[in-house]
C-alpha cells in the first residue's frame, strides 16, 4: 500500500524535475508543433529560476500561515480565548468564500505590484483552512484523554504539547495541505501582479497568443501542484496511528 502511494509521487516528481531542466531541449518538438511561434520555448526566464521563485513564495507564506493558524486555533480553544472561538471559525469559513484571485487583486493597492502582495494574499488566504482544521482537530481530542493527562499531573502547556497537538496533527496537516495547494494556485495567478512564478509563461503566452508558452507553464504548474499534494499524502500516511494505517 505504501509503495503504491509512493511510486506516483516518485515518478511524477522525476518527470517534473526532468521537464523543469530539460524544457529547452524540447524546443524542436514545440517548433514542429507550433511553427509560427519563435522561440518555441519560453525564454524570458529560466524554468528552474521561475520554479524556485514560485516555491519561495509558497514556502514563506504557507509556513507563516501554518504557524499563525495553529497559534490562533490554540488560543481560540483555551479557556481565555473561548469567547473568540465562534468568530475565528466564522472568519475562517467566510474568508474561504472570497475568490483567491480577488484577494490577490485587492492586496495590490495596499502593497503595490510585485512579490509582496502575492505573499500577503497567500498568507491571509492560507491561514483560513489551517485555523478551521486546527480548531476542529483540537476540539476532536476526546475529553477523557485531556482529563487523564491532567490527572497525571500535566500542566496545561504539557497537555497541549504532548496530548492535544499530537492527536490533532493529522487534521491540522490536512488543513496545511489545502492551504499549500491553494497557495500554489494563487501564486500562479500572482504573475499577473508582477510576481515571478511558473505562471509567468502562461500569462505571457495568453497575452501574446503564444500557445506553446501556455502549455509549458501549465504542465509544470500542474505537476508542481500534484507532486506537492502527493508528498503531503505520504506525510499524512506517516502521521496516521499505526493501527489505522
Amino acid at each position: 500500500m505504501r509503495i503504491a502511494l509512493k511510486t506516483p509521487a516518485l515518478w511524477l516528481g522525476l518527470l517534473f524535475v526532468t521537464l523543469l531542466t530539460g524544457m529547452p531541449g524540447l524546443s524542436p518538438v514545440f517548433g514542429w508543433a507550433f511553427p509560427r511561434v519563435r522561440p518555441a520555448v519560453f525564454d524570458r526566464a529560466g524554468f528552474v529560476e521561475l520554479f524556485l521563485s514560485h516555491l519561495g513564495l509558497v514556502a514563506a507564506a504557507s509556513t507563516a500561515a501554518a504557524l499563525a493558524g495553529v497559534a490562533a486555533a490554540v488560543f481560540a480553544t483555551r479557556p481565555a480565548g473561548r469567547d473568540f472561538r465562534t468568530i475565528a471559525a466564522l472568519l475562517a469559513a467566510a474568508g474561504q468564500t472570497f475568490p483567491p484571485a480577488a484577494v490577490l487583486a485587492l492586496a495590490v493597492p495596499a502593497l503595490g505590484f510585485g512579490a509582496r502582495p502575492t505573499v500577503v494574499a497567500l498568507f491571509v488566504y492560507g491561514l483560513l483552512p489551517v485555523v478551521e482544521n486546527a480548531i476542529a482537530g483540537i476540539e476532536g481530542v476526546p475529553e477523557g484523554l485531556r482529563e487523564a493527562a491532567q490527572g497525571m499531573g500535566m500542566t496545561p502547556w504539557q497537555v497541549l504539547r504532548r496530548v492535544e497537538l499530537p492527536l490533532a496533527a493529522p487534521v491540522i496537516l490536512a488543513g496545511v495541505r489545502v492551504s499549500v495547494t491553494v497557495a500554489i494556485g494563487t501564486a500562479t495567478i500572482g504573475s499577473t501582479v508582477g510576481a515571478l512564478t511558473l505562471g509567468t509563461p502562461i500569462f505571457d503566452g495568453l497575452a501574446g497568443n503564444k500557445l506553446p508558452y501556455v502549455l509549458q507553464g501549465a504542465v509544470l504548474v500542474a505537476l508542481f501542484a500534484v507532486v506537492t499534494d502527493l508528498l503531503f499524502a505520504v506525510l499524512a500516511r506517516r502521521l496516521q496511528p499505526a493501527d489505522r494505517r
Binding site: G185, G199, G205, L215
Partner: peptide, 21 residues
C-alpha cells in the same frame, strides 16, 4: 478527482486551450 482538484485553475484552463482549438 482529487488530483484534478489540485491542479491550479489557470493551468487547467491553459491545458484545455490546445486540445479544444
Amino acid at each position: 478527482l482529487n488530483l484534478l482538484q489540485t491542479v491550479p485553475s489557470i493551468a487547467l484552463f491553459g491545458l484545455l486551450i490546445a486540445p479544444l482549438s
